[in-house]
């Protein structure tokens, strides 16, 4: 019987001044694809550890340019290093993509709820990612693989635009070589070298190897993809309250005060970004919420 608990995490007590960015130094910038990149950041104060749970996000500030929410894509067991992966879509991410090792950017966080990683112990873990939605799910893979014996099957279903857009490709290939992790990738359009699946990620759900009656699913991608993924998972027999989704909205404060990230009655920043499917179900079916 799976029933996800919501995990409210950071409050004022943990963050002295939640609106004030802390400078972090860029250690490495890695190009993932033509429009995505990963930043490895280190706290300026060397003894500082950045602890977070998979699914949480930070507000990243480029000096004088602006600030945006970005999910954390790194390993929660390596708190000396903070890792973010994002796509170039606006002025801040564009400026971010031009950062070089040694540059500095501001960090506020971590904010929000995390994936139900401990609720999933004893269950099969199904991760369904669409595009850049793989980034906030990667910490779940690190976490579950670090405690592999606590979980049943671990299955990643990943849909992206084209073979060139595949995120964390080397890491995925390495993981795929393991016998205790199943990875299925599908693309919207392949090329002549692509011999894998073509089509939307929901098509992978019916044949994916997991025990639907004892599974926890974590889903991140475009809203419409998450909505239909939840429907497909339920058709397989996964309970609605065994499905977690991660939402995205405009955010200015990340602490529930600016009002921008409202989605129905929820504030995505503090009630989410990770929600259980029943919390959102009725709103996901509506337009312009």
């Amino acid at each position: 019987m799976i029933n996800l608990t919501k995990t409210p995490l950071m409050t004022q007590k943990q963050l002295a001044n939640p609106m004030q960015p802390e400078p972090f130094r860029v250690k490495r910038v890695m190009k993932e694809s033509y429009d995505t990149f990963t930043l490895e950041l280190e706290p300026i104060a060397s003894e500082r550890l950045f602890t977070f749970v998979p699914g949480q996000f930070n507000m990243l500030y480029i000096f004088g340019v602006g600030e945006i929410p970005v999910s954390i894509s790194g390993d929660p067991n390596q708190p000396a290093m903070l890792v973010h992966t994002t796509r170039i879509v606006g002025s801040v991410t564009k400026a971010m993509s031009k950062l070089k090792a040694g540059d500095v950017l501001g960090v506020r966080g971590p904010f929000g709820t995390g994936w139900p990683v401990s609720d999933a112990e004893g269950c099969d873990v199904i991760l369904v990612a669409g595009g850049i939605g793989l980034a906030p799910l990667r910490p779940v893979l690190y976490q579950t693989l670090a405690h592999r014996d606590r979980y049943g099957k671990i299955v990643l279903l990943y849909g992206t635009r084209s073979p060139e857009d595949i995120l964390f490709r080397k890491e995925l290939e390495k993981w795929r070589a393991r016998f205790d992790l199943e990875i299925f990738v599908t693309v919207d359009y392949g090329d002549s070298d692509w011999h894998g699946n073509v089509g939307v990620v929901t098509k992978l759900i019916p044949k994916a190897p997991f025990d639907a009656l004892n599974a926890v699913a974590m889903v991140c991608g475009p809203e419409v993809m998450m909505r239909f993924t939840a429907i497909e998972l339920q058709k397989r027999g996964v309970r609605g309250d065994g499905i977690a989704l991660s939402m995205e909205r405009n955010m200015k404060c990340a602490i529930g005060l600016c009002g921008h990230c409202q989605f129905g009655p929820t504030f995505i920043c503090k009630d989410g970004p990770v929600f259980t499917y029943p919390q959102l179900q009725s709103w996901l079916a509506q337009w312009e919420v």
């Binding site: 004088g64 602006g66 200015k252 404060c253 005060l257 600016c258 921008h260």
Partner: peptide
């Protein structure tokens, strides 16, 4: 009504920023 936005700015030298 309580909604707010933030504006990030720099001075002309680019040395000073404020929110």
């Amino acid at each position: 009504c309580f909604c707010t936005t933030v504006e990030d700015m720099t001075d002309l030298t680019g040395q000073q920023a404020e929110r």
